[in-house]
């Protein structure tokens, strides 16, 4: 763990490095305090621990209605894939010659599904879905994959209980480099 001083020192070293030669003056500080409404609007990413999952809920049945209206044209009515990604099925194919990487067979976290639908889908009208519709479409896709039951309700609490089949399928390759020597 970095101590506060170590981080400050690392940042200072980084600053000296990026400037090439030592800076005669510090860069100006022209960032403005971020207003709360802007933060609320923009801070929409959801990490695997679920921080930031909004209130609201949806069921697979509700999700099917939204999906047929707003998603099926590109992904097929049951997420089987059409002009764009297949979202359903493919379990057990990751080691096969013909592989189907889908939400069900490949995605490690259900939070990613909520995050991604809310930020980017439907492709032709991103950010247009209400949070309830995001929960519902995510529930529909998860139910089609047999990951939740058709009678389940998805909300901030239940989404965190979803265990994705391929949750252990990823190997983190990132290794922190040794800290650069302070004196150069």
């Amino acid at each position: 763990m970095f101590g506060r001083k170590r981080v400050a020192a690392a940042a200072a070293v980084a600053l000296a490095c990026v400037a090439g030669t030592a800076l005669a003056v510090d860069p100006p500080k022209l960032g403005q305090r971020a207003p709360a409404d802007l933060l609320a609007l923009m801070d929409k990413s959801i990490p695997p621990d679920g921080t930031g999952l909004p209130p609201g809920q949806g069921t697979p049945v509700q999700g099917q209605a939204v999906f047929l209206e707003k998603c099926a044209v590109c992904h097929g009515p049951r997420g089987e894939g059409l002009t764009n990604d297949r979202l359903v099925g493919g379990e057990g194919t990751l080691t096969q010659e013909i592989t189907a990487k889908t939400v069900g067979s490949f995605w490690p976290y259900a939070t990613t599904l909520f995050d991604y639908i809310r930020r980017a889908m439907p492709y032709d009208a991103p950010t247009s879905l209400k949070d309830d519709e995001v929960y519902a479409t995510a529930a529909y896709i998860l139910a089609l994959n047999g990951i939740i039951k058709e009678t389940d309700t998805l909300n901030a609490e239940t989404l965190m209980k979803v265990k994705m089949p391929n949750a252990d399928g990823f190997i983190n390759q990132w290794v922190e480099p040794a800290p650069k020597a302070a004196a150069r």
Binding site: I46, P47, F106, P108, T112, N172, Q173
Partner: peptide
Amino acid sequence: GPTHTKDETSKYTELMPDGKALQFTF
């Protein structure tokens, strides 16, 4: 920690013959 977005899980990860995927190969 990392947020595990769509483009660092579903995409831009490297599926190996054993079915595991290498993640964060920057």
